[in-house]
Amino acid sequence: MGEWRLYGIFALMFFATWLTRGAFLLAGERVRLPAGMQRFLRFAPAAALGALIAPELVGGTGQPLDFLSPRLVAAAAVVLVVLRWRNPWVPFLAGMGVLLALQHLGR
């Protein structure tokens, strides 16, 4: 059963992502999103991304917080690079480069 668990979850996730994307396409023009709701939903991506990224950088479930972790330093490099260059490859190269360099030095 464990083998198929993930496939089952992916099938359910299909509906979760399909229905959010399709919300108003599927309903046709009968339903409109109220303006107040639209303003609130605007914050959802930033909130979700912040909540997911922070533990990856500083310390997740069961881990101590580490504000000098190599991941956090690498993330700072990514932020600088994203603000400066539009090339989509640079952040990945910079982030992985800094992370691997720090891990190498630490060893």
Binding site: M13, A16, R21, G22, F24, G28, E29, L33, Q38
Partner: peptide
């Protein structure tokens, strides 16, 4: 929790789909 997180991360599409709906009516 996995499904709720997936849906929340996709909430921006609710706004997109509201904006695109007239093109599909």
């Amino acid at each position: 929790l996995i499904l709720a997180t997936a849906a929340i991360l996709n909430l921006r599409f609710v706004i997109y789909s509201a904006a695109m709906a007239p093109a599909f009516h």
